[in-house]
Design a protein around this nucleic acid. Structure first.
Lengths: 204, 204
DNA sequence: ACTACCGCATGACAGATGTCATGGGGGGCG
DNA sequence: CGCCCCCCATGACATCTGTCATGCGGTAGT
């Protein structure tokens, strides 16, 4: 071992974040040198601490871990990126890889894989759950257009067509048309199911 | 200190569970003697290891942490119960307390509160976030009847009235009536919003 | 230039959803 | 016992939602 691996930890739930830090702290060759709770604080922290690996949770306020990964990949290309998430959604894996992630871990994998992944990415390897990789490939790409995604996201809270039309500056008919095409693309029967399926696949 | 506090840890995500175990392992007076990943394995594990405190996540397969708490409270009344959750929903707090919980923690509280809470409940104290307690009181009790909750839960995935009627062995009109009253009680405008609000409040 | 797709819109229609009035059967409580 | 609430149901009505045909302007790819 030449020197310890410096890790940045980004995760919004303090208890989980500090617990993960404790876990990594048990490893001799790993040191958690920075912790942040928001996606939009990741870049600054990474710059300030000269880290080797960034560990990014996806679900965070400010910016998602995937958005943070894309930023880091652009600004600090040397930095290795491990994306960590609760939900093993194939669409998440796909976006994470497109954002430049080197590893993709789900939180219900054994804890030992975390330190493992940190070492592997530093050695230039990629770490991806094979089951998830297969699922991502089997599923194909996101069939929704930008606009359809946007409207589906806005419809997720139960807004009516009138409200959607108002907030998105569209006519009601247009809103219904977009929802209709989204419903057909996802092969479901109403907007509620469409939202659910799109969420599950990580397409929202 | 007489002897170490024996803790049972129930949490479905391995990485989080083992990380929390690592965190508690740093404390001299606390020992994690058992770990389970399912709600329906909690009771057996508690019996097998003579634990002092059970740490229960709410969101688990098999049975929720709240259901597990109720079981433990009935079978092993001496055992202290700490309920841990991602979501600070007032309705969760209420049900947890009714199930006999001694402490209620949200995962975005500082990690130090975890060991803290374990010690306090063993000393006979109750640990509840004051903000959350206030919210729980302000919100009042769940206004939904059993049937309304059941139907709302079934409607959450986007099922149509016809499907709901079939699975619940009701007429379509009855389904609509229940949804209508639920919608009015929650002061919203459609089933999707009703599901969302009921979820947020922990009433589902 | 032609084609294809996207974003946006309108109008018309069928079917789903939400509301309301009404009523029967049951349990609990004063 | 009367009252209230819950569970279940029906029918009628108004509105919302989803579908389809059609059209226009813009942007990309071949």
């Amino acid at each position: 071992m030449t020197r310890t691996i410096k890790v940045l930890l980004a995760e919004d739930q303090s208890m989980v974040r500090e617990a993960l830090a404790a876990l990594l702290g048990l490893e001799d060759d790993i040191e958690v040198v920075a912790q942040v709770a928001r996606g939009d604080e990741v870049l600054a922290a990474a710059r300030a601490h000269a880290v080797d690996v960034a560990l990014l949770d996806i679900e965070m306020p400010g910016a998602t871990g995937i958005e943070a990964a894309a930023q880091l990949h652009g600004e600090l290309p040397e930095l290795k990126l491990v994306v960590l998430t609760t939900f093993g959604r194939p669409g998440y894996l796909r976006s994470a890889m497109e954002a430049g992630a080197d590893a993709f871990l789900v939180k219900d994998a054994p804890a030992a894989q975390l330190a493992e992944a940190v070492r592997k990415v530093l050695a230039g390897e990629r770490v991806i759950d094979p089951t998830l990789a297969a699922a991502a490939l089997a599923e194909g790409a996101n069939p929704l257009t930008d606009r359809e995604r946007e409207i589906l996201r806005a419809a997720a809270d139960g807004s009516t067509n009138a409200e959607l039309a108002a907030t998105l500056h569209l006519s009601q008919g247009t809103v219904r048309n977009y929802l209709s095409t989204a419903i057909q693309k996802l092969a479901v029967r109403n907007r509620a199911e469409a939202v659910r399926i799109a969420r599950e696949k990580g397409w929202l």
